[in-house]
Design a protein around this nucleic acid. Structure first.
Length: 422
RNA sequence: GGAGAGUUGGCAGAGUGGUCGAAUGCGGCGGUCUUGAAAACCGUUGUACCGCAAGGUACCGGGGGUUCGAAUCCCUCACUCUCCGCCA
């Protein structure tokens, strides 16, 4: 959620910025500003009436204590009209507040100045491309065929037990999952992130805190009986640790990481994009989350990008880095970089990480603040990124490392897997 | 699943209809004293919103109600704890 103060002060810049998303905010912002002006006026009126009521009530109390019952009852009679006014104003103020909140929920974050205007993924900028496409002198197989051939992942069995999109990893396939998770966590720890193991279900307040609710309700699995949600990413529990928190000073830099399974309903997905590991309802991911002073956000983002690059370098995967255009940048993000690895057999790029800065947008919903040098509360900045999501990494590793002698395991993983080939 | 007890400021903990945004203690901050520190003593110390300011308003788990007036009474929801049962 954008800050109302910012909308009052930087109306034009916000409208300009949101144009990069092909989002015309003019109407909403005008409505917000006029509703906000009306709200402040009504609010002041309401508070004046409340002040009068309070002072009369106080007097009545004193009169009763002094035994002046008649005078007290006379004063009581005066309150009727005020009370009516108060109720009327209260209703008006509440209605305006609801209007404003509803309007504000519709406004996405303002893209960073580096973000280019654009409508869809077609307009994303390729910032960097690392490595070369693998060359094969034999037939290449997609990962779902390799997984079946080597008995690594059983998609059919997953369908039997749960449904499509819930694969069962077996033998070396399961071990490879475990190895990647440990490797990613160890690397995050080396980079200064404290490991957390959070709950996999969250309450409604947490869903609102990170912005999955109310908009993306249909994307999460909901446990109706207890009104809890399966997490779509570790971002939700990890970030919500800091909901309603005021950090005591401006000298902080919070870096946390966590491995969790992620659950996504992926309603509306279909076709060849969902083949094999490309899109799942449950998958594993190591997430990194940072809470930073606004002055430090740009540096933090760069560090996170370098971290993810390091992981892909160590795994020996070819990858490219994209800066998403306005239209493709998520609702809450100010800027997002995607990492894609090349799938040799599918001959396409697979997104394996998304690293974003949210600036104060998320913190505003979370009420996550710090005390600045003037002892005033100020919103923190939040950032997060995948480091990394497993399924497509596994897909690329299987496909790109296939040889006539089996599938080669990258050296950095061998101490975790205990084998060097499949 | 059954029974009971709770939810108050950073923490502990009083407060059962009016002068309560809330005693007291601890912690924090500032000061006195001290070569320095500790102790002691004095002062100070919640959040948010409106306002140039003075000041005002709201908040005692959430929501609703009664009342001129609610931390306090009523309803409702959520959560926590204890005991019993079950159990990895």
């Amino acid at each position: 959620m954008l800050e109302i103060q910012r909308i009052r002060q930087e109306k034009e810049q916000i409208i300009e910025g949101l144009k990069k998303r092909h989002f015309d905010a003019t109407k909403i912002i005008d409505e917000v500003i006029s509703a906000d002006a009306a709200w402040r006026q009504k609010k002041t009126e309401l508070e004046n009436v409340a002040a009068q009521m309070n002072s009369i009530s106080k007097e009545i109390g004193i009169l009763f204590r002094e035994g002046k019952t008649d005078e007290a009852n006379a004063a009581k009679a005066k309150t009727g009209e005020l009370k009516e006014q108060e109720n009327k104003l209260k209703n008006e103020v509440d209605a305006l507040e609801n209007d404003i909140t509803e309007l504000m929920y519709q406004l996405p974050n303002v893209p960073n100045e580096l973000v280019k205007a654009g409508k869809s993924e077609e307009d994303n900028e390729i910032i960097e491309e690392v490595g070369t496409k693998p060359v094969f002198n034999h037939e290449v197989f997609p990962h779902w065929e390799l997984a079946e051939k080597h008995d690594l992942i059983d998609f059919e069995l997953g369908v039997k037990v749960t449904g499509a999109g819930f694969p069962i990893y077996k033998g070396k396939g399961a071990k490879l999952q475990r190895a990647l998770i440990s490797f990613f966590l160890d690397e995050a720890e080396k980079a200064g992130y404290q490991e957390h193991m959070p709950p996999l279900v969250v309450n409604e307040a947490s869903g609102f805190g990170t912005g999955q609710l109310p908009d993306k309700e249909g994307q999460m699995y909901h446990i109706g009986e207890d009104d809890l949600y399966l997490i779509p990413t570790a971002e939700v529990p990890l970030t919500n640790i800091y909901r309603d928190v005021i950090l005591p000073d401006d000298n902080f830099s919070i870096k946390i990481t966590g491995y969790t399974p992620c659950f996504r309903r992926e309603a509306g997905s279909y076709g060849k994009d969902v083949r094999g590991l490309n899109r799942l309802h449950q998958f594993d991911k190591v997430e990194i989350v940072r809470i930073e002073h606004p002055d430090n956000t740009a540096d933090a983002l760069q560090e996170m990008l370098d971290h993810v690059k390091g992981l892909l370098d160590k795994l020996g995967l070819q990858y490219r880095v994209l800066r998403l255009c306005g239209g493709d940048t998520g609702f809450a993000a100010a800027m997002t970089y995607d990492f894609e690895v090349y799938s040799a057999a599918q001959e396409k790029w697979l997104e394996v990480s998304s690293v974003s800065r949210f600036d104060a947008f998320q913190a505003n919903r979370l009420k996550l603040r710090f005390k600045n040098a003037d002892k005033k509360s100020q919103l923190c900045h939040t950032l997060n990124g995948s480091a990394l999501a497993l399924p497509r990494i596994v897909a690329a590793l299987l496909e790109n490392n296939q040889t006539a002698d089996g599938i080669m395991i990258p050296e950095v993983l061998q101490s975790y897997t205990g084998f060097d080939r499949i």
